[in-house]
Simulated scan of single mutants.
Amino acid sequence: MVLHETEIEILGIIENNGRLPIETIAKMVGKSIEQVEEIIQKLESLKIIVEYNTIVDWRKVEGHEGVTAMIDVKVTPKRGVGFDDIAAKIYRFKEVKSVYLMSGAYDLSVVIEGRTMSEVAHFVSEKLSTLDSVLSTTTHFILKKYKHDGTIFDQGDEDKRIVVSP
């Protein structure tokens, strides 16, 4: 679908900060509030704007740190549906946050979240690896997030107090 320049500009603004008031967006693009509301409703109805998300640094919430793993999956595609069928089976699991078709040594990249490493291991061994089309998996545990979806974590968290010594 071909979008107008203003629609693309609004998408860029919303992608960077989905909580901006309509009034602010309207001023930024030089349009009326009503025009911006109409454009956003159009983009939502066309599923170009799919969802509004919040990024949470769960490491800072005691007892809710959890474990995130990236799993490389090698699969056998099915005739007529390619990778879509197995990808759909995988993304329906509640633990799965993302599924991507990849080029390279593995076919799919799956991002999952669990409370513990054991929970992630159980998912891989009991649910993912047992699917008919799955040939092999390689699991990578995320140890620390530095940047996620354009947001830098721990930016400006260092202690800025002046050291005073006797």
Rank of each mutant, 00 (worst) to 15 (best):
E51V: 07
T54F: 09
Y100F: 10
I71K: 05
F123I: 03
L43T: 09
G18M: 06
R79C: 02
I49P: 02
L3N: 07
E113N: 05
I112Q: 08
R79G: 01
S118R: 10
S125Q: 12
V134C: 12
K145Q: 13
S45N: 14
W58P: 07
R161L: 07
V124M: 01
L135P: 00
W58H: 03
G12V: 04
G18T: 14
L128K: 11
M70V: 15
K47H: 08
G12L: 00
G156L: 04
I48S: 05
T6P: 02
V67K: 12
A121Y: 01
W58A: 08
G156P: 01
R59C: 08
E37C: 01
F93Q: 02
D85K: 13
S129V: 07
Y106R: 11
H122A: 14
H140T: 15
F83Y: 13
V110I: 14
K144Y: 12
F141A: 13
A26P: 05
V56W: 06
S129P: 08
R19H: 15
K97H: 07
Q155D: 09
K127G: 00
K89C: 02
K74T: 10
I25A: 03
F83M: 08
F153H: 02
D154A: 04
S103T: 09
I112S: 02
D107W: 09
V111W: 01
T54H: 04
R92W: 07
V110M: 10
K94H: 15
E15Q: 15
G104Y: 05
G18I: 10
I162Q: 01
E44D: 03
R19Q: 15
A87I: 09
I162A: 09
V163K: 09
V81K: 14
T68R: 01
I49G: 03
E23K: 12
E38G: 02
I10K: 07
A87K: 14
L46S: 07
V110A: 09
S32N: 05
E113Q: 04
T116Y: 10
S103H: 02
S118L: 00
E119R: 06
E65A: 12
E9W: 04
E126H: 07
V36I: 12
S45M: 09
D149K: 12
T6Q: 09
I71Y: 06
S118E: 13
L11C: 08
K127W: 01
V120H: 03
L101C: 02
I152K: 00
K97P: 01
A87L: 13
M70D: 10
I39E: 02
I112T: 06
D107L: 04
V120E: 05
V36C: 05
V56F: 08
E38T: 11
M1S: 12
T151C: 00
